[in-house]
């Protein structure tokens, strides 16, 4: 699309307040869950096991509730479309991280109104949302059900395997987080990457129609442009 239509770069609100609250409370929850989870697993004993279990359970339940809201939000606002996998620019972006980044090339992807993530990002987040997170919460809920005596139907699987599955999912999340944080250091700067998730605003390529639509229907989204055209 961008190839055919003239676009201009504008700073608009890409991450809504709910999305930012979601992101940061989810981030905090995940860090707490990893810390307490490792204590429960026995990797460290920086906190007492009983406290770890209580905090882990409470935070997990809160996060589940947040996910219920997030899923609702994604579908009611249509934001879920940002995560539809696409091959467009996929090779370029992958090539950039594998080679171009070392040569000092510019990141080949520009955020657009309908695609706020690059294709690699979108695919990763989709995988996190539909594979890794479900793996953690399905196994976690199964574990909790057994804990409150409602998990007899899971008896055939056994706590040991439920826990193993939960641990594997947790390792996948840790791997995701390492990569996620590392990628913030690529491109402009770490701060430049983190800022949009705090202020909500980022530079986006807008088509003439998109700009017109925003200006007429959601003028509050359009922020005062900085230097670029």
């Amino acid at each position: 699309m961008e190839n055919q239509m003239p676009t201009s770069t504008h700073t608009i609100q890409v991450y809504k307040l709910f999305e930012r609250i979601w992101h940061w409370s989810q981030a905090a929850s995940i860090f707490i869950l990893i810390f307490t989870g490792l204590a429960i697993h026995g990797t460290h004993s920086l906190i007492d096991f009983g406290t770890a279990v209580t905090v882990h359970t409470a935070v997990a339940l809160a996060l589940l509730l947040l996910w219920v809201f997030a899923v609702f939000w994604l579908f009611t606002t249509g934001q879920w479309r940002h995560y539809i996998p696409t091959t467009k620019h996929f090779v370029q972006v992958a090539r950039f991280y594998a080679f171009g980044i070392f040569k000092g090339e510019q990141h080949p992807y520009r955020k657009t109104y309908l695609r706020k993530h690059n294709p690699l990002q979108a695919m990763t987040y989709l995988l996190v949302k539909i594979v890794i997170f479900p793996a953690i919460w399905i196994s976690g809920i199964a574990y909790l059900l057994v804990s409150i005596g409602q998990g007899d139907f899971l008896g055939a699987i056994g706590m040991e395997y439920i826990a193993l599955f939960h641990s594997i999912a947790a390792i996948a999340i840790i791997v995701f987080i390492i990569a996620h944080i590392y990628l913030l250091t690529t491109g402009h700067s770490f701060i430049e990457h983190v800022k949009p998730m705090i202020t909500g605003n980022d530079e986006v390529e807008l088509t003439v129609e998109e700009l017109a639509f925003i200006m007429s229907d959601e003028p509050q989204k359009l922020k005062v442009d900085s230097s670029d055209d």
């Binding site: 697993h41 026995g42 826990a163 594997i168 390792i171």
Partner: peptide, 21 residues
């Protein structure tokens, strides 16, 4: 015969998990 977290009985999980991370 019973799963007890924090007992570190699943050595392989610990080793493989650590290697992956």
């Amino acid at each position: 015969g019973v799963y007890m977290p924090a007992t570190g009985k699943n050595r392989w999980l610990d080793i493989i998990g650590l290697l992956i991370i």
